[in-house]
């Protein structure tokens, strides 16, 4: 275990802000909201910096905070979103997402079809190279659930990719 004494908040912020913001943007599908949540996550990280015992675990620790902030927001606004969608027939968080083009758009659409917790697990493991146990710790989901989420998500994405390559 590496000592935590050398970890400064500035270093953590600089090293991980890009990943945390990208992760939250893909979960929220709203850039402005994702950046607000990322700020909240880093404020919490600043308050709890003393809890970080192992500098090697900083990445999964930050992802854990970010995912908890996102989950808290999602719970808080679930009812509001339902009302909005019932009235407008659109996802509230989709409003500010710029549309990517081509293959990137298609993979984004395929990912967006996955439930948020499945999407989070797929992102953590396939995009950010975290192990299943790290993703389990970060998401608060049991290890078996994380594995099944990744298997299910990967199968859907592979099916999509296969169909895309066939087309």
């Amino acid at each position: 275990m590496r000592p935590v004494a050398s970890v400064s908040f500035d270093d953590l912020l600089r090293a991980h802000q890009g990943m945390i913001r990208a992760f939250l943007r893909r979960l929220c599908r709203n850039d402005a909201l994702a950046d607000d949540l990322a700020q909240d996550a880093f404020l919490i990280a600043h308050q709890r910096l003393g809890d970080l015992r192992d500098t090697g675990a900083a990445k999964s620790w930050l992802f854990q905070i970010a995912y908890n902030v996102y989950a808290g927001h999602a719970r808080k606004h679930a009812r509001r979103r339902e009302l909005f969608e019932a009235q407008n027939g659109a996802d509230l968080d989709d409003a500010a997402q710029p549309a990517p083009a081509g293959m990137a758009r298609d993979i984004a659409m395929a990912m967006d079809q996955l439930p948020a917790d499945v999407r989070a697990c797929v992102l953590m493991c396939l995009s950010y190279g975290m192990s299943h146990s790290e993703a389990s710790k970060a998401s608060g989901l049991p290890l078996g659930t994380v594995k099944s989420h990744i298997k299910r998500g990967t199968e859907k994405l592979r099916a999509f990719l296969h169909a895309y390559q066939q087309a």
């Binding site: 890009g18 293959m103 396939l126 995009s127």
Partner: peptide, 13 residues
């Protein structure tokens, strides 16, 4: 291919 695509999809900002 999927991993490469997802790396682009979630590239750090």
């Amino acid at each position: 291919s999927l991993k490469a695509l997802l790396s682009d999809y979630a590239a750090p900002i």
